[in-house]
């Protein structure tokens, strides 16, 4: 333990502590109590959007990756086309196309306006979740394609030799091995997805980024809300990274 304490580390730690003390005392934080409730709610919305789009997107990504490896050819081409389209265009463009494009067509159709879905279709968040889900599916589809293709053929043949049906083979060997291979990449992609979520603020969804914008507009204080926002995202990223590392370490099989 003592050997860990080196002069340069002590100096750096003191510098960091000094910076934190300076930021906390010399800058203005009197707006914080007033907006604390909004900030917590905003973090909740951000996490909800992240979790739902990562889960839904991954469910899409598995078939997207699998069909590109197994075929049939037309289906593989379709999946490849989808991934290329999503990965080749900016997410903001996709979001706005879905919200202001497709979304603004719905109200003109009378039976949609009268259906039970209308209260949801009027809201902005379904379009945000849809766009972010497509985006995650597009990127992960490509990752999963590589992961499926990378599982050694011998393992699959061994499964077949045991008389496993194709579905059992997928469930017991192919998918778990592919996910284990893709896990480090997925970690990075989930962090990227977290940092894509503030885009929903442009279509009137109030996430944590939108809350700090509101603070800035209401108080004309600029740097403090942005610093806090940076800290919040840094903490969320840290939690994500450590969670993934835990799962990676639980799986001791390294690729041979």
């Amino acid at each position: 333990m003592l050997s860990w304490i080196k002069p340069h580390r002590v100096v750096l730690m003191l510098l960091a502590a000094g910076l934190v003390v300076y930021i906390a005392t010399a800058m203005s934080w009197e707006w914080l109590p007033q907006f604390a409730g909004d900030l917590v709610a905003g973090v909740g919305v951000t996490l909800l959007i992240l979790a739902s789009t990562v889960i839904l997107g991954f469910l899409f990504a598995v078939p997207l990756g699998l069909f590109q490896v197994t075929g049939p050819k037309p289906l593989a081409l379709l999946c490849k086309g989808f991934c290329t389209l999503i990965r080749g265009t900016p997410l903001l463009l996709q979001l706005w196309l879905i919200y202001y494009g497709v979304g603004s067509l719905f109200p003109q159709v009378p039976w949609i306006r009268e259906s039970f879905l209308w209260p949801y279709l009027r809201e902005a968040w379904p379009y945000g979740v849809l766009a972010l889900t497509f985006s995650f599916a597009g990127y992960e589809g490509e990752v999963m394609r590589g992961a499926f293709a990378g599982v050694p053929n011998g393992e699959l043949e061994a499964g077949r030799a045991y008389g496993m049906t194709p579905f059992t083979l997928l469930r017991r060997i192919w998918l778990p091995r592919a996910i284990a291979r893709a896990l480090p990449t997925l970690n990075g992609e989930v962090v990227l997805q977290l940092k894509a979520t503030p885009l929903v603020a442009t279509i009137t969804v109030i996430d944590v980024y939108a809350v700090t914008s509101k603070v800035r507009q209401a108080t004309y204080i600029i740097y403090e809300p942005l610093l806090l926002l940076a800290l919040i995202y840094l903490c969320l990223t840290g939690i994500l990274v450590f969670t993934f590392r835990y799962f990676e370490n639980r799986n001791p099989t390294r690729d041979v």
């Binding site: 202001y100 979304g103 603004s104 067509l105 109200p107 003109q108 306006r113 009027r122």
Partner: peptide, 8 residues
């Protein structure tokens, strides 16, 4: 105005 026109 756009969202008003589209009825959102």
């Amino acid at each position: 105005n756009q969202d008003l026109v589209s009825g959102r």
